[in-house]
């Protein structure tokens, strides 16, 4: 989860001249990129929304003939779109004056290349933009990943759960939440030391990542985890949670022969909640079920009551 996708970075060239596209195809063919091309502002914006490119090479004098949207207009659209505002934009132009170059950079373009291209310079500027983009992505992801376990962190959990609750309500789709807490973790820490406690959290996190691809496992805090299960009704979520529970129980701890570590689970289906649920309601409902799992003897899965009992 911490590694970035292994696909080649995408570069989108938006220029109204086929001559420039052919040239870029040849001149960037040895770079480790996927190159895409659009010959108008409209198509370029549409492709950018679909492809989510890392870098855009953008001609300033787009569509001279129809007096349509120019490169500045396209950049403005990108900057107003949350999905595209982080894209590195390299302006290319045959005529740009110093004022235009400054304007482009002030509007958020990351670099500028003059046409005709000095090939080595073009390649270097594309590579440089990709390096910056890679770091931006890494930082953005790092800020959402828990350092110890590699799971998504609390910040991400809150944001994603808000998003998923919204989607579930809008599209009338099912959604479940599983809260999980390691049994007797404080005692473990006290008796075996914190390094061992950390190891337990790491291993359990790995188990929580072995579920279905759509499950979103997060470290909620301390020894508590939250797993978001989109498109999953409560009864399925109970099964998923029970699989995790058994896997944790069966885990072998070579440094402490014979030791069994367990966890308790609370499950809530978003449709158990009355009205328009907030994520706080959702979390506390799952937490209440988790609390009952603890009270009823630990190493158990409990579901929010209304799911099974009418009223």
């Amino acid at each position: 989860m911490t590694a970035l996708p292994l696909t080649l970075p995408k570069v989108l060239a938006i220029d109204d001249s086929v001559l420039i596209h052919r040239l870029l195809q040849v001149r960037l063919q040895h770079e480790q990129i996927q190159l895409f091309g659009a010959t108008s502002a409209d198509v370029g914006i549409k492709m950018a929304r679909e492809l989510r490119p890392d870098v855009v090479l953008l001609d300033i004098e787009l569509d001279l003939k129809n007096q349509g949207m120019d490169g500045f207009g396209v950049l403005q659209v990108f900057k107003a779109d949350p999905d595209l505002q982080e894209v590195s934009v390299i302006f290319i132009s045959a005529t740009a004056t110093m004022e235009e170059r400054v304007r482009a950079l002030d509007m958020g373009a990351s670099d500028f290349v003059a046409k005709p291209f000095e090939i080595v310079e073009l390649q270097a500027r594309v590579r440089s933009a990709l390096r910056v983009q890679h770091l931006v992505k890494m930082l953005a992801q790092k800020a959402q990943v828990d350092g110890l376990t590699g799971l998504w962190n609390r910040t991400y959990f809150d944001r994603r759960l808000t998003q998923e609750v919204g989607e579930a309500i809008r599209h009338n789709r099912s959604l479940s939440l599983v809260m999980c807490d390691v049994d007797g973790f404080k005692k473990l820490n006290d008796e075996r030391g914190h390094p061992f406690g950390d190891k337990v959290l790491e291993r359990l996190s790995r188990i929580l990542q072995t579920g279905r691809g759509s499950d979103i496992a997060c470290r909620y805090g301390g020894e508590e985890f939250g797993i978001i299960l989109p498109n999953t009704v409560g009864s399925e979520a109970i099964e998923v949670a029970d699989r995790y529970r058994r896997a944790i129980e069966q885990e072998i701890w070579p440094s402490v022969p014979g030791m069994v570590i367990t966890a308790s689970f609370g499950v809530a289906d978003v449709f158990v909640l009355p009205g328009t649920p907030t994520i706080e309601d959702f979390i506390s409902t799952a937490d209440a079920a988790l609390y009952r799992a603890k009270v009823n003897g630990r190493n158990r899965v409990e579901a929010a009551v209304a799911m099974h009992l009418p009223g």
């Binding site: 005529t95 046409k115 005709p116």
Partner: peptide, 17 residues
């Protein structure tokens, strides 16, 4: 407009070729 576009494209690309 058409003439300018044609000239402008050649201006931007010819050096590259």
């Amino acid at each position: 407009d058409q003439l300018r576009m044609l000239a402008h494209q050649l201006k931007g690309a010819a050096g590259g070729y």
